[in-house]
Design a protein around this nucleic acid. Structure first.
Lengths: 254, 254
DNA sequence: TCAAAAGTGTTCTACGTACACCCATGG
DNA sequence: CCATGGGTGTACGTAGAACACTTTTGA
């Protein structure tokens, strides 16, 4: 296919891109840059430095154009793998951004955003990837395009979903203690919950079951280990967001 | 721009389409086709008969390709207007469908689906639109592409959102009684709720406030009228779906 | 023996459900 | 005067929050 000239690009049909917000509890051995907040309870994500216009040199979400022979989810998985060397423990479509002027180029791009969780245990020896760096979500650099909005929406969605499903467990390995799980939940939701009540709620939910193993890791009683059990049905009851309202909060009347 | 030949179309970058699932409580004066279920408590939506391959003659969701100078939401609104002559009382992005083979043509299309609610009161005198018919969601004809999946997902989303937000009120006019609102909720959720408890929950939620007006419409005590009040924050806490799955349930807990 | 996290038990409250019952109206 | 929905009152059950308390470990 012939390349398009400038005026053709401006009125050409919008192309499709896929970008992914990849959350982890800690940065891998790569080169983290943004300094972590002091309390340390923060999430991390990988960014890619752009090497082409527009926004050359800026950091952006891992992603790229959708190939003709690739599904949306496949595209998200493959860019995730390229950026981290890993497979996601959780992957879900987030929202599709299609504003007229978001591309800042002549060729308009509609971006289908995904969000993913990866587990600490999956931190296989990963050679640092070219042009990829990990940042704390609480100390992000300026991002290209509207990627800051995408990250903000992904954080909201993660928080929301963590409150009524067991997604947060995807940050952990196969086997975990309820203390670990509670700390993950607290990190994601930015609160601190009562260990006793958290334990009861978790067990009552039927989402975890004991493996029988014990784990001892400090000057205190060893903890029973649990494994995750498939969600009953949960994540089907999904709603949806209005990502435009990053500043606005409420409306509705007419 | 030159038209593409067959082999070029097969490997060309995917194009973007926008389709909308438009829910109403009753069909307008147009030509409803699918017979309503006997109980009558069902939702309705407009479909468009395809006039071109593929799926010529089949019914499909209102929609079309995304123009270079139109945002996704604008596109959804305009096709909604074309199909119904109305503006939506509620409009929200649903999900983006991008499977490799869903288009059934050489040129691959990624469809951004929206869902919308329109109000009875908005049923302005609408001349019937060419090639548009209204069907009960419980008696849909065979649909083109994967549009049946899209409708199914939209129904799930509507139900889910109706259980924890006030969206259902968008089916009604500016002023309504709690009995009307309850019947709408029951129709959407497919259940029957206790009038007394529904009233209390609704009032306690702060989503409605009395207008002072009364409405009398039968051999019984007149009902107070209410108007909708902006949602507190609600819809920000949005999750997301796994459209592949068709089952559903209710759940929550943490 | 002490600090710290695991784990159990108990109480209190909020909220939804079930259901009895009164109110106002048109026929 | 009665059927019908609007509207109020009340009792019960369940789930989460608060918090006291016991258990088991490493140092």
């Amino acid at each position: 296919m012939r390349a398009l000239n400038v005026s053709e690009r401006r009125t050409a049909p919008p192309r499709v891109g896929v970008s992914t917000v990849i959350f982890a509890l800690q940065p891998p051995a790569g080169q983290p840059v943004g300094d972590a907040p002091h309390d340390g309870a923060t999430l991390w994500l990988p960014l890619v430095r752009r090497t082409r216009a527009p926004f050359t040199g800026r950091w952006a979400l891992p992603g790229g154009p959708l190939a003709w022979d690739t599904s949306l989810e496949e595209s998200a998985r493959s860019t995730l793998h390229e950026a981290t060397g890993l497979s996601p423990r959780y992957l879900e479509q987030l929202y599709t951004f299609g504003g007229r002027d978001r591309s800042a180029t002549d060729l308009r791009v509609v971006t289908v955003a995904y969000w993913a969780l990866i587990a600490l245990a999956d931190r296989t020896p990963m050679e640092s990837v070219e042009n990829v760096a990990w940042y704390s979500v609480d100390a992000l650099p300026p991002l290209a395009f509207d990627h800051a909005d995408i990250v903000a929406l992904a954080r909201r969605r993660l928080r929301a979903k963590a409150t009524y499903t067991g997604v947060a467990v995807r940050f952990l390995g196969e086997e975990f203690t309820l203390g670990e799980l509670r700390r993950v939940h607290d990190a994601v939701l930015g609160r601190t919950s009562d260990p006793a009540n958290f334990r009861r709620r978790m067990l009552a939910s039927g989402r975890v079951e004991p493996t029988g193993a014990l784990r001892r890791d400090g000057a205190h009683r060893p903890a029973r280990c649990y494994r995750f059990v498939a969600e009953p049905d949960a994540e089907l009851l999904t709603p949806a967001p209005t990502p435009a309202e990053t500043t606005e909060r409420k409306r509705r009347t007419s």
